[in-house]
Design a protein around this nucleic acid. Structure first.
Length: 283
DNA sequence: CAGGTATCCTGTCCGC
DNA sequence: TGCGGACAGGATACCT
């Protein structure tokens, strides 16, 4: 479900609604949930179900900040504990008074007025959580495993994108190269930059590599300012679906006219993912 | 070893 | 209306 703009929109909404709140308690379940996301290897092995302790779930802490890099989102407590929440394909973080009936994995009780709940809900269970005793250790994991954030223009990995023989789309989806681009924004960036997703990285000119990264930033920034893209089930913590859908000009439009030239767009599979592009506008 | 593919899940949609 | 199959925005274990 979520890519960088959706997760940044969720981060901003949580920043407004839960920073300063004390976490009174947390419960896991009822379903199985795994450790997923950057920093996973740094922790203990994480088998199944109720492995996370109250301490790891930030109980008795006060929410100090929400940090994001790429698609990783972390709740940081005032004593330095951090919990990374990886939303996977279908994960949601909700702030509500009534716990959703289905697919709840972690439910936090927030102290204070109204006794609200923060809920990690994830129907497909591709998501997970990774606890860190100290936020500094979490940042080290992120530095080790993730490329620069996809919104960061100053560290755009232009030359690294030109390395190797894989398809450029596969490289854009590689979180260790640039963090945050997913299947939708990869197609959008390649379409806007006029580059075919099957182009090999080492056949990109420097200008083309710079262009596709710049387009990905431009499109993702626009999406963030509209609260993210709701194609299926993206929701902000208070239930708003976001309104960036009309920024999506390529993804999922196979057979429909290209916004550039009007010819029907081509659909197929690239890097194991469904992919849409224009055979005329993208070379 | 870089790169492709199968796999973890549930929900939804489409054709019969 | 019901049912089977395809497919879904992510990440990774495991092949080649």
């Amino acid at each position: 479900m979520p890519e960088l703009p959706e997760i940044e929109s969720i981060r901003r909404a949580l920043e407004r609604s839960i920073v300063g709140q004390r976490i009174e308690s947390a419960t896991i379940g009822p379903h199985d949930m795994r450790a997923r996301g950057a920093g996973r290897a740094a922790g203990k092995p994480r088998p199944g179900r109720t492995w996370a302790s109250a301490r790891e779930l930030l109980v008795d802490g006060r929410v100090a900040s929400l940090e994001r890099r790429g698609k990783q989102l972390a709740i940081v407590a005032d004593d330095g504990r951090a919990l990374v929440v990886q939303l996977g394909m279908s994960g949601q973080l909700l702030v509500t008074r009534d716990a959703p009936a289905t697919h709840r994995h972690v439910t936090w009780s927030l102290a204070g007025r109204g006794a609200r709940l923060l809920v990690f809900r994830d129907p497909r269970r591709f998501g997970g959580i990774v606890p860190h005793e100290y936020v500094q250790a979490m940042r080290q994991c992120w530095d080790r495993e993730l490329g620069p954030d996809g919104l960061d223009a100053r560290h755009a990995p232009i030359d690294r994108l030109r390395e190797g023989t894989r398809h450029v789309k596969a490289a854009l989806l590689d979180q260790s190269l640039v963090a945050g681009i997913g299947n939708i924004y990869a197609d959008e960036a390649l379409h806007a930059a006029g580059i075919r997703p099957t182009r090999r990285c080492n056949r990109l000119s420097r200008d083309e590599a710079a262009r596709v990264l710049a387009e990905s930033r431009r499109i993702m920034r626009g999406s963030v300012s509209r609260g993210g893209t709701s194609l299926r089930d993206h929701v902000l913590p208070e239930g708003d679906p976001g309104s960036a859908r009309r920024l999506i000009l390529a993804y999922g439009r196979s057979g429909l006219p290209c916004h550039g030239c009007g010819l029907p767009m081509k659909g197929g599979r690239v890097a194991g993912r469904s992919t849409t592009w224009c055979t005329k506008c993208q070379r």
